[in-house]
């Protein structure tokens, strides 16, 4: 709704901060996410002894690192109003390729990792090109990507392959000791690094800002003369790179490659992005929100483990319910904004 007519100069929006002014249309879902996380964490800590130990929190980061890394890339795609369903099977495909290259072909792990990262970026760019040049619906193109990755992964090896290479053993044990708090594992560090780079990209580069612009209004972005096509392709390439990196994290974390790994991970990642406050229609959201979104699902999963009597499927139901709530919240805000 428009403001009242008596607004010669915008007195209501003049400089100077009002209380809670930071709560606007784009920050509100993010604030809600943080609140949900804090409430869940506090409730779980009060309810389960030992939950508040710092190591539990650090493990949240490490255990969900590969979901999180993929989710950061996905955040950019969703910010443009697109979607990438291929991230889950990319993790499976990447991990089995690394494992096979290292164990069966005796390729040096570093080269194997670089190859997989290059592959992910290439496939992502390819999907982006189809979307950019032929206006194909992103969900179908990336669904094809999902099948392609899963198919290639299974063609490489139907069986899970363990990675014995000493470098992997060292990497999976690596971590930064944090004194009494425990230690921050390498996968958690990679996750946090990716989040940091993601925040930087989204906040401080033209690529990031154009990403937001496309999701906000592609038409306007075109009229403003922004590089819409290039950026659209770029986000899918970025997402491809991130899911490949996630497969590396997975391979290191489990010391194995498995073509069936990451089944349904795309849904977890999408859920984390949306619960993290990013609108599925694009344009608003924060990479930091995705971090919190991943942590929310991590807390739920950990709490269910602590409970012992609850089973793992409650995670999925909780994820679906949270997703429903956040989407309805977004719709309600959208309607009010109109």
């Amino acid at each position: 709704m428009r403001r009242p007519p008596s607004q010669p100069s915008p007195s209501a929006s003049r400089k100077g901060k009002e209380p809670l002014r930071f709560l606007n249309r784009s920050t509100f879902p993010f604030a809600a996410t943080v609140l949900v996380f804090v409430l869940l964490y506090v409730a779980a800590s009060l309810h389960y002894t030992g939950f508040s130990r710092p190591q539990v929190f650090l493990n949240l980061l490490a255990d969900n690192a590969f979901v999180g890394v993929a989710a950061v890339g996905l955040t950019f795609v969703i910010l443009t109003g697109g979607i990438d369903l291929s991230v889950g099977s990319a993790v499976g495909c990447g991990s089995i390729i690394i494992a096979t290259l290292v164990e069966k072909q005796h390729v040096h792990p570093v080269i194997a990792i670089l190859l997989v990262l290059a592959m992910g970026t290439t496939v992502g760019s390819g999907m982006g090109a189809l979307i950019r040049y032929f206006d194909l619906p992103p969900f179908l193109v990336t669904l094809a990507g999902l099948f392609l990755y899963r198919g290639i992964g299974l063609l490489v090896s139907m069986e899970s392959v363990s990675i014995m290479h000493p470098l992997f053993a060292r990497l999976s044990m690596a971590g930064v000791p944090l004194g009494d708090a425990g230690s921050l594992q390498l996968s958690a560090i990679v996750f946090l690094l990716v989040v940091a780079v993601g925040i930087y990209l989204s906040r401080h580069t033209t690529f990031g800002r154009v990403t937001y612009a496309i999701g906000g209004s592609e038409q306007s972005a075109l009229l403003m003369g922004l590089p819409v096509g290039r950026t659209k392709m770029g986000v899918y390439a970025l997402s491809g790179f991130c899911s490949a990196l996630a497969s590396v994290v997975y391979a290191v974390y489990t010391s194995a490659g498995n073509a069936n790994a990451g089944t349904g991970l795309e849904l977890d990642a999408i859920a984390a992005v949306v619960v993290g406050g990013t609108l599925l229609s694009g344009g608003t959201g924060y990479v930091a929100g995705t971090l919190v979104g991943v942590l929310i699902f991590g807390v739920i999963q950990t709490a269910i483990t602590f409970q012992g009597t609850l089973s793992s499927w409650w995670t999925k139901i909780a994820a679906g319910t949270l997703l429903l709530l956040f989407i309805l919240l977004q719709r309600a805000m959208h309607r009010r904004a109109r």
Binding site: Y212, A213, G215, G216, S217, S220, M224, G283
Partner: peptide, 10 residues
């Protein structure tokens, strides 16, 4: 233009 071509979220 007539329809203000801006990006509302920015």
């Amino acid at each position: 233009y007539q329809e203000v071509n801006l990006i509302p979220g920015l």
